[in-house]
């Protein structure tokens, strides 16, 4: 359930756009920042705030790699897998991360719920391929030898960020 604070933040976001539907992406970030992820019930709540059908919200949530329908780890590692990064070795980078984090095939989140690894669609920094975003930090070009230190540095961060500035909510129930 979204808190009243989160709902109010979302209503305020809607006021910033001529068409309130345009506020859907930041609203989903707010909801995700509070709950930690976006289960069906929360998608329904957001849909209700926008007078949208939940099918529409669900379509948006599944389209973007930054939204999660399942609980995630505290830290998010998005490694780009699109063409520029792939040609520059992202497959190997992803494999290395999986091995270091001890992720079994099919797993995205480590057993200690510290990391979620996403092989991501283009993150818009092809000049730094192969690249990644650790929480909100853009890193690249990644070399295999850097991977240990990237994991260590990420551990020191606050965790999964919310890109919407100045919102008044309690962060991350799932962390």
């Amino acid at each position: 359930m979204l808190s009243e604070k989160a709902k109010n933040s979302i209503l305020k976001l809607q006021d910033k756009y001529p068409v309130k539907r345009s506020a859907l992406l930041p609203a989903l970030h707010v909801a995700q920042a509070e709950i930690g992820y976006l289960p069906q019930k929360v998608q329904q709540e957001v849909a209700d705030l926008f007078d949208l059908n939940v099918t529409e919200v669900h379509s948006v949530v599944t389209f973007y790699d930054m939204f999660f329908e399942e609980p995630t780890g505290k830290h998010l590692l998005h490694v780009c897998k699109n063409i520029s990064c792939m040609l520059r070795g992202s497959d190997e980078v992803i494999a290395k991360f999986r091995a270091k984090l001890g992720l079994k095939p099919g797993e995205k989140t480590t057993g200690d719920k510290q990391f979620t690894l996403v092989a991501s669609e283009c993150l818009a920094a092809c000049d730094r391929a192969p690249m990644m975003i650790a929480n909100d930090k853009v890193i690249g070009p990644i070399e295999e030898k850097d991977i240990d230190s990237i994991i260590e540095e990420t551990k020191k961060m606050d965790g999964h960020p919310c890109p919407v500035p100045n919102i008044d909510i309690e962060r991350g129930a799932s962390h």
């Binding site: 059908n53 939940v54 669900h58 379509s59």
Partner: peptide
Amino acid sequence: DDALKLKDRGFRTEIGTP
């Protein structure tokens, strides 16, 4: 009525409902 929607993206795109 927004009955059916595209879900996910790229080659994983499917149609349906949540």
